[in-house]
Design a protein around this nucleic acid. Structure first.
Lengths: 126, 126
DNA sequence: GCCAATTATTTCGCTCTCGAAACTTTTAAC
DNA sequence: GTTAAAAGTTTCGAGAGCGAAATAATTGGC
């Protein structure tokens, strides 16, 4: 029972962010979809179906479906690899950048409003 | 284009956690389901369908379905409120506690492995 | 050129989820 | 005790996701 303090703080920041995002009526992405989206934006290109399938240990059809959904939402874009036309490269979009920027702001705000302290009982360091 | 540094770091921690969770074959919860689960565990009881519907600004049937899913997974439990038998109280389970503890560990580990520094170029403070 | 390997998508049958509206149970008003 | 309100669930038709297997499309071996 009970959590380590830092884990608890981390979970609470996660909670505030998740609740804030849901309340904002953001698209209700699954964990897989979010992991895929963040991987495309925050890890070095190129991003292919096969590569993401290996990275996430999820079947290729499941990756294709997640891409379908994120593409419908306008958060990423497909582009055929001209060097190997079998491959599909995933690219960022303006809408996706905006979405993730706002999401990042939510996390930062949630962390800032974490007034639980560090457990030391001392005032926070600035 | 581009993100503020702290937002980028926050997003990257989120990414590592999300990817790690998916790779571990954790249940593929939606943002709504995760927000609900965290709210039940980290905010003061009682937790009712109506209360969560207001908190998350999501319809009551959608809350019921999310509870159905989380209950199937054994992560929370329903209990009729004996003071008002119309209400259903949501309670924690051992399995849910374990799941969230591990998830918290994942976040903490992701934050610890954030070797990007604080942008100052100085070594991290311990 | 031909054939096997690789990449991604589509299909199949099935389950889960959606919002809106209808419904059941329980409580409170009076 | 009858009636209105409240809490939660169920139903509806429709859309999305699942894994496994089948299907393109393209490439590389030779």
């Amino acid at each position: 029972m009970g959590f380590d303090v830092s884990e608890l703080q981390a979970l609470d920041i996660w909670r505030r962010t998740a609740v804030g995002s849901v309340r904002r009526d953001a698209p209700d992405l699954s964990a897989r979809q979010m992991a895929l989206l963040l991987s495309v934006y925050l890890t070095p290109a190129p991003h292919t179906v096969r590569g993401l399938s290996d990275l996430l240990k999820v079947s290729k059809p499941a990756i294709t479906r997640a891409i379908d959904r994120l593409t419908e939402l306008g958060l990423i874009r497909r582009k055929v690899d001209e060097n190997d036309r079998r491959s599909v490269l995933l690219q960022r979009t303006v809408k996706g950048s905006v979405f993730l920027r706002e999401f990042g702001e939510l996390i930062v705000a949630a962390a800032a409003s974490d007034d639980a302290g560090d457990g030391s009982g001392l005032p926070p360091r600035y």
